[in-house]
């Protein structure tokens, strides 16, 4: 059974090894880009939620509550189906007659970005709230402009406190990226389904998918732990 497994999953002429590795690369690339976009969404949402402006607060809260209360799969379907029709409608108002179909990859990245952004916003907000008020006052009293204060005082500390939370969201989004298979990006899950279908060895393939996810999660987890140690190196040890 083990020999059979390695023959199916190996790198030989009939092996699926390279194909699975390429799919893993796609999963990592997809998650990293989605996560990167999510950081931008998350930072904007966190700023909007912390702002002294009722409208911005309501917008940010609506975004966060909707994303956290609606299944990710449903969000992915909505982003997938609506993005094309929205772009088509906008194009039609400017006089472009043909329907437009967006390529799948950017849609997938947007979906992952929207989802991870909501969770990251909470992480950033919590990290911002741990900054001591006196530090902000001190920065203001030496005459720092808001932009300078943001860059020199807020960003370094927020990132330091946010590292563990960001790591959690990364693990979460890595696993969510498997849902992207439903809209047709060939990442681990999609590739595994195809492999299982054409070889009639579903167990072999799905177990491999699980192992690949565990391996990626493990190594990135180690990376985040290192990053956490590095970012808190100047702080008092408990």
């Amino acid at each position: 059974m083990v020999a059979d497994y390695f023959e199916t999953m190996g790198f030989g002429p009939n092996g699926w090894g390279w194909v699975m590795l390429r799919a893993s690369g796609m999963t990592i690339f997809l998650s990293v880009t989605g996560f990167f976009v999510g950081n931008i969404f998350g930072a904007l949402a966190a700023i909007a939620k912390l702002a002294n402006n009722k409208v911005l607060n309501v917008v940010a809260n609506t975004y966060l509550n909707i994303v956290r209360g609606v299944p990710e799969l449903v969000l992915i379907y909505i982003v997938f189906y609506e993005s094309s029709s929205l772009v088509t409608t906008i194009a039609q108002t400017f006089g472009y007659p043909e329907p437009i179909f967006l390529p799948v990859f950017p849609v997938a990245v947007t979906a992952l970005g929207v989802i991870s952004g909501a969770y990251l916003a909470e992480v950033f907000r919590a990290a911002f709230l741990t900054i001591h008020k006196g530090e902000l006052e001190a920065a203001r009293s030496v005459g720092m402009a808001p932009g300078l204060m943001f860059r020199r005082i807020i960003i370094p500390q927020v990132l330091r406190y946010a590292v563990p939370g960001i790591g959690n969201v990364w693990q979460f989004i890595l696993k969510e990226s498997s849902l992207i298979s439903v809209i047709g990006v060939v990442e681990i899950m999609r590739q595994t389904k195809m492999g299982a279908g054409s070889t009639h060895k579903p167990f072999t393939f799905f177990i491999t998918a699980a192992i690949l996810f565990i391996v990626i999660a493990f190594f990135t987890g180690v990376g985040f732990r290192k990053l956490e140690q590095w970012s808190t190196r100047g702080m008092k040890r408990e």
Partner: peptide
């Protein structure tokens, strides 16, 4: 905790 639920469901 590190296997996606979708993968588990398929297994």
């Amino acid at each position: 905790r590190s296997v996606p639920l979708l993968v588990l469901l398929f297994i």
